Computed example of a mutant assay.
Amino acid sequence: MSSHTQPSRVGRRTVLKGASAVLGLAALGGAWRAESRGVIDPARGPAFDPWTDWQAHERGDLAALVSAAILASNAHNAQPWLFRMEDTRIDLLEDGTRHLGTLDPFGREMHIGLGGALENLLLAAGANGYEHRLSLSPRTEDPAHVASVTLFPGPSVASSLYAAIPHRHTNRHPFDTSQTLPLSAFNSLERLNDEQAVQIVWFTSKTERDSMHELLAGAAEAIYADTEQS
């Protein structure tokens, strides 16, 4: 694979044919186009192609690693990443144009998303027959350079986490409030926390849930009203 002198933006919108649909929708503003392209539909269309085509590359193709990386969870679907692919190396870079502004003033959520992309990339490296050497923040003169992954031929190791990559998605369905979780479920979740400084608080009564709903709705309204963030 030939080297790129400039970072190559590989995102969910551009890795496959979905780019034309999104750009066309923005330019034409036609709701019919969104409908026909499946952008609004929750189960089909170019916006969902990366989840079904992420393994369409030939084994060992570095693009296969990036296709797995871009399916990572990231705050507000900002997709704050750039990838630069060379013969035996992939660089992960922060895309500052995708910053969430006042919603993420310290870049914490952005870097959590970048870490998720890096984790997916390394899982895909093993599944595609690569061993790797990871270097974090390798170039201090370029703060946007998050990591470099140097790849070497190795055994193919496909883990259960790798197989789970395409199943990660946002659940936007309403909560089912007709069922009550057993006490054992709460206890199991509490045992996952081993930090003394963190306290888990459960909102189980309707009054408590309604109060939290009002707070969350107010926070969402404040976010949408923030011009800089928008």
Rank of each mutant, 00 (worst) to 15 (best):
P143T: 09
Y162S: 06
S159D: 11
A158S: 14
G116H: 13
V157W: 06
T150N: 15
G115K: 13
A125M: 07
F186M: 15
E109H: 13
T170A: 01
A144W: 11
L103W: 07
R139Q: 01
H99L: 04
A185C: 07
L121W: 13
H173S: 08
A185M: 12
H111N: 03
P182D: 12
V157M: 10
L122Y: 07
H145N: 14
Q179E: 13
G154A: 06
P138W: 08
G126E: 03
L181K: 00
R98C: 11
L100M: 13
T180H: 08
G107H: 08
L136G: 02
L114K: 00
N171Q: 09
R98E: 04
A127R: 00
D104Y: 05
T180C: 06
T102F: 01
G113M: 04
P182E: 11
H111K: 15
H111A: 14
R139H: 09
G116M: 15
E109N: 15
D176K: 08
R133A: 04
Q179K: 11
S148L: 11
R139I: 14
H169K: 01
G154M: 04
V146K: 01
H132C: 03
L134Y: 05
H132T: 07
R172H: 07
L151R: 00
R133W: 14
N171G: 09
S135L: 08
T150F: 15
L100E: 06
D176C: 01
Q179T: 15
P153G: 03
L100H: 01
E109D: 15
H132I: 08
N187V: 13
H99D: 03
A127N: 02
S148K: 09
G116E: 00
P174G: 04
D104S: 07
A117H: 00
L103T: 14
S188Q: 07
R168A: 13
G154V: 08
L134V: 11
A144C: 13
L134T: 03
Y130S: 05
N187Y: 12
L123H: 04
A117S: 10
P153W: 00
A163P: 03
E131D: 02
F106C: 11
F175M: 15
T170M: 11
T102S: 11
N120Y: 15
I165L: 03
R133S: 14
R98S: 09
D142S: 14
R168E: 14
L181E: 01
L181Q: 10
S188V: 11
R168P: 01
P182M: 00
D142E: 09
P105K: 07
